[in-house]
């Protein structure tokens, strides 16, 4: 693999046969590696789709397809059973939470990051330092008390959905780094020009900066929308054992939590996984460009 690193820049001048041949060999090796990698990365997803169509047995199996020891039966029963179980409820719960979080969290993050990027006020630096230090506490620590408080307010256990919305959204101001980095790249002279023309600060934000910030807005919405689909621990702690208020992560994990559950629900879990993954993946692939921009920008700025 090391050898290929050199190939980043191949001088055009020295194009004689020896180098060409070496290049072809190294490219072939690279193709082999890339194909192997693609297989490794795709295999779990292929397997999960295949297993989601297995009707019998419903438990785990060492074999993907029928084997002399066991013969499988195939069909759509898992998806039908999924529809009959609590799964649609979980799906709806997660979807509602994700929509709400996507909207509110985006507003909050944009407020925070835009302010920290554009305004210079006395508490700005202390605030940023303080949030950095706050971020060093494990978030799980706050879970214990938030659970108790939400329970007292009637927003935990069977009513966990609004409670979870509140918790996901409340502290989202701390995740301002990526979009602040983006706002920093929009030249300040734009603001100043508009201010000279008599625009208020609010007008500058809504009429000038936001239209320019479309990529980062989409990135924020995308990440905010996707996070609740995967949140597991917080939801589990706050919901307790109330299947009607589960989100998909807690519900699907519950199907695999004991060995008895696994033997009954394993293939149903696979079907559930496919149903959850498909829309999120399609959305993600469509908006990939914005995600890549956000991630790269965020890492560069730290």
């Amino acid at each position: 693999m090391k050898k290929t690193d050199s190939a980043a820049v191949q001088p055009v001048m020295k194009k004689h046969m020896g180098i060409k041949a070496a290049n072809r060999i190294s490219n072939t090796i690279l193709y082999v590696i890339l194909i192997l990698m693609s297989i490794i990365w795709l295999i779990p997803f292929v397997c999960i789709v295949v297993q989601s169509f297995r009707v019998y047995p419903t438990g785990m199996s060492r074999y993907l397809f029928s084997h002399p020891d066991i013969s499988f039966r195939w069909g759509f029963d898992n998806y039908i059973n999924l529809w009959k179980s609590n799964f649609p409820k979980w799906y709806l719960n997660t979807f509602i939470i994700a929509l709400f979080v996507a909207v509110v969290q985006t507003v909050i993050v944009l407020c925070m990051s835009y302010t920290l990027s554009r305004f210079r006020f006395k508490l700005r630096a202390p605030m940023m330092k303080f949030m950095l230090i706050l971020g060093m506490f494990p978030g799980m620590l706050t879970m214990i008390i938030l659970y108790q408080v939400l329970k007292d307010l009637g927003l935990a256990l069977e009513n966990a959905v609004p409670g979870l919305m509140l918790v996901y959204v409340a502290s989202s101001g701390m995740g301002y780094y990526v979009s602040k980095g983006f706002f920093d790249t929009i030249p300040k002279s734009l603001d100043e020009a508009a201010r000279v023309d008599g625009a208020t600060r609010a007008q500058v934000l809504f009429k000038i900066i936001l239209p320019l910030a479309k990529p980062i807005v989409i990135y924020t919405i995308l990440t905010a929308f996707m996070a609740p689909w995967g949140d597991f621990v917080f939801a589990k702690y706050i919901v307790g054992v109330n299947p009607s208020a589960y989100n998909v992560a807690v519900g699907l994990q519950d199907w695999l939590s004991t060995s008895a559950n696994v033997s009954e629900n394993y293939t149903k879990f696979c079907a559930g996984g496919v149903v959850v993954a498909i829309p999120v993946t399609i959305l993600f692939i469509c908006l990939q460009r914005y995600y890549v921009e956000g991630v790269t920008g965020g890492a560069v700025k730290g």
Binding site: W41, L42, F45, I48, M226, W229, G230, F232, V248, A249, L252, Q253, G273, V276, A277, V280, T281, F284, I285, Y291
Partner: peptide, 9 residues
Amino acid sequence: MTIAIPQFI
């Protein structure tokens, strides 16, 4: 694709 599919799955 691996990023897109929710991690818990």
